[in-house]
Nucleic acid binder design. Sequence first.
DNA 1: TATTGTTATACTCTATAACTATA
DNA 2: TATAGTTATAGAGTATAACAATA
Lengths: 146, 146
Amino acid sequence: MNDVKLTSTLAFRLGTLGAVVTERFSARLAGHGLKPKHIGLLTVLESGTATSQLDIAKLMNVAPSLVVSLADRLEELGAIQRERDLSDRRRQTLTLTEEGRELLATCTAAAAELDSELTDGLDPEETEALRSVLRTLARRNGLPAD
Amino acid sequence: MNDVKLTSTLAFRLGTLGAVVTERFSARLAGHGLKPKHIGLLTVLESGTATSQLDIAKLMNVAPSLVVSLADRLEELGAIQRERDLSDRRRQTLTLTEEGRELLATCTAAAAELDSELTDGLDPEETEALRSVLRTLARRNGLPAD
DNA sequence: TATTGTTATACTCTATAACTATA
DNA sequence: TATAGTTATAGAGTATAACAATA
């Protein structure tokens, strides 16, 4: 007889906690008319790992057509700049503007606030252990490693 | 100057890892024609915290109409039984069948397998620390605590 | 012909609103 | 009149497919 509970697996806990946290993060973004994927795109540009829309789509694991609409919105807000690549005029090169960096900083502050709420009451060692292991898991699963 | 990266916040890491893990779990469920929410409903029934469809909807934070379609599918598979509450014939009482328990056990095994993949290569202490702190976070955020 | 970006369309998931039956 | 469940409808989010410009 196996009495391991599905709800106590890491998979279940990461999935459900991830959904709760993403939901709360979204709520804080709502004022800007942005969704998590918009911010994901900004973080890609900040990291410098991709600049053309197609490369960004591959990196984010989303359809190229989605990058079009995310970029449309971010350009409209003045957070990014879209420029034709002069050496290959099919490509659009996206770059963060100063306003985009400020927006990203605002979102980072919101995320940091969420972190505080999440870890409030945890032992400092627990919090640090969590940060450490999540960094490892991120790296090993193709997510931004920093 | 603040150089904290959004991508290294707990909020970002939990959100993205949660999405990756949920996606992988979904892939393993696909063969049964089920999605994570179906399994979520099964875990509610197993826990005994709710039996009427409305109570289940509240507990899962989803619309009552969604519970109808989730239950339709699970009933079709023989995983749950739907019975009118005799003392209040408006209510449908959902119960896990033996087949439902077996299905849940299969899904639990799939999740445990995912856990192994995730933690393969981690120190045992790291893995245990992760389990421990995720349990705490789950409890503090209204998720199944066990 | 192949590739990048765009537009048009469709699909999945889920909520809201209208409805039925019980209370 | 209020509540549990159901059905009908609509919206958000995203993918796929068709298309245009460039290579």
